[in-house]
Amino acid sequence: MAVPVSSPAHPDIAPIVAITGLDKTYASGRQALKRIDLEIRRGEIFALLGPNGAGKTTLINIVCGIVRPSAGTVLADGHDVIRDYRAARAKIGLVPQELSTDAFETVWATLRFSRGLFGKAPDPAHLERVLRELSLWDRKDAKILTLSGGMKRRVLIAKALAHEPTILFLDEPTAGVDVELRHDMWQMVRRLRDSGVTIILTTHYIEEAEEMADRVGVIRSGELILVEDKATLMRKLGRKQLTLSLRTPLPRVPDALAGYPLELSTDGATLVYTFDARSGQGDLAALLRRLAEHGIDFHDLHTQESSLEDIFVSLVRAGA
């Protein structure tokens, strides 16, 4: 059986979004993006992480045609977003961060409008599928102003999907969305990916990236400081800690154990061993044996793995 071309495991095929040397300096003189190079793989979920004001939305808005770049090129499915904007934009759906809707329109009318605007012939069956998928079908004749915030967010997603885009940008899709709805949203995003849509989302909920993304990019002060497979990133930067609660407090770490990166709490009752996740459990067993040899006993132990959040915080701090 042929391997589906949308598999994120096959990065060698042409990227669906190719960003090269992208610069943006606003009229105010503020440089929002600095020489961004980024390739998004076909069929992946890519999470763009970064603190507020880092340039996430500017980057998305340039790809979607809302903001003009100062320099650099962006190709969406092979089409230059400026020279060949019609073909490029037809491929892209955008869900903005703000809940901007036509309050007096009905859900159905606003979807039909979106589809037409993107140059597609009417297709009520497709719009029905989209609305059902987003649990909005029973509200299709409701005016948007009567909907809750979470529903409005889904209307925006439905609008973005009305013209069957192959690339979907979700700018902070779960900002201000309650926990339950957030999980629904994640599931929906996964289903979209499974249907072949490439998804690029920005978020400052690290949990979201950790939960969903295939790859993660971290942007800080307009610079893309890291792009990595999420798993690789966690493996590479993820550190584990073994914490031992000692039966008898130690005055200091015994000399015989000086080769291990051990830290003793000030009261001498807790010993913390920090190790690289890649080095596996072999080291750990050796350490425990060495401790036993030196008569160091403990009544409790636990290990802790750093999350993407810790990694992110340390990355963003490092350059601050």
Partner: peptide
């Protein structure tokens, strides 16, 4: 004013 212009600006229209 309402912000819905984003859609017009990101649509394949001149």
């Amino acid at each position: 004013w309402s912000g819905t212009i984003y859609e017009l600006l990101s649509a394949p229209v001149s």
